[in-house]
């Protein structure tokens, strides 16, 4: 469904993505992991057209996304740090995005609005919201238009345990519907429940793309965190381990 071919991206002189190639299919739930600064967020931004790659092609269902914009109606995106206009209230924001996406969606999925009790803080302006509450709003926006592709960048960071659990259940439900889900997180135990595949990237390159089950089998440990730690040690990527565990 998403084909990424030899994507490279450098900011000024720092190479963030280096000839990265990755293919993702409908129904997969992929955990994108790697140390800090390995290019995860940049890769996601390239997928959304927020950052423009220096070279390489990104295709969705065979169509090059370069310079395109309509494909974004098929993606729900939850950013790592949701940044919103200060003076707009939560409800106004939701209404605005609905109005902008009018005609590009079939059903409105407002399940998360209910479970996060968004209406209780609907009249607050975005400026006054705490980090976790903003995350809830980001999550609502990502799931609201029932998109085929969900891209979640650190979805549970900043959420309280109850909300994190609600979000995880929602992700699982969407996964059962056969959507393509791409998640980054540093909390590997979260990813273990949510994903079936792991794409490990480091220094802008794809190190491996494997099924979670295969990783566990190969390393002989029943736990994804330990398995990944072992792989990183084998690959001499020891330094960033502290960040991951």
């Amino acid at each position: 469904m998403i084909t990424i071919e030899n994507i490279s991206k450098a900011f000024v002189k720092v190479k963030v993505l280096d000839q990265l190639t990755l293919e993702l299919f409908r129904g997969q739930s992929v955990a994108l992991i790697g140390p800090n600064g390995s290019g995860k967020t940049t890769l996601i931004k390239c997928l959304l057209g927020l950052a423009i790659p220096d070279s390489g092609i990104i295709k969705i269902d065979g169509d090059d996304v370069k310079g395109e914009w309509q494909y974004r109606s098929r993606i729900g995106y939850m950013p790592q740090i949701g940044r919103y206009p200060d003076n707009i209230t939560v409800m106004q924001l939701l209404e605005m995005i609905k109005e902008i996406r009018k005609g590009t969606y079939d059903v409105l999925d407002e399940e998360l609005l209910e479970s996060f009790h968004v209406k209780s803080f609907g009249n607050k302006t975005m400026r006054t919201l705490s980090g976790g509450t903003r995350q809830k709003v980001s999550a609502c926006l990502a799931f609201m238009f029932d998109p085929e592709i969900l891209i979640l960048d650190e979805p549970t960071a900043g959420l309280d345990p109850v909300s994190a659990e609600i979000l995880k259940e929602k992700v699982k439900a969407e996964q059962r519907k056969g959507k393509l889900i791409l998640i980054t997180s540093h909390i590997l135990s979260d990813l273990e429940d949510l994903s079936n595949e792991v794409a490990f990237i480091n220094e802008g390159r794809l190190i491996f793309f494997k099924q979670v089950e295969d990783i566990k089998k190969e390393t002989g440990s029943g736990n994804l965190s330990k398995a990944i730690a072992r792989i990183m040690q084998e690959q001499n990527l020891i330094t960033p381990i502290d960040n991951i565990l």
């Binding site: 469904m1 409908r26 129904g27 590009t104 059962r176 519907k177 056969g178 079936n196």
Partner: peptide, 30 residues
């Protein structure tokens, strides 16, 4: 418009081969 055929009898789980097939069907549909 842009919803995948989620109600198809064989729900696509994480089997690459299966999902590839589903993908091709969907491309032509889409």
């Amino acid at each position: 418009m842009f919803t995948p055929n989620t109600n198809s009898p064989h729900r696509i789980e994480s089997f690459p081969a299966l999902s590839l097939q589903g993908d091709e069907e969907n491309i032509t549909l889409r």
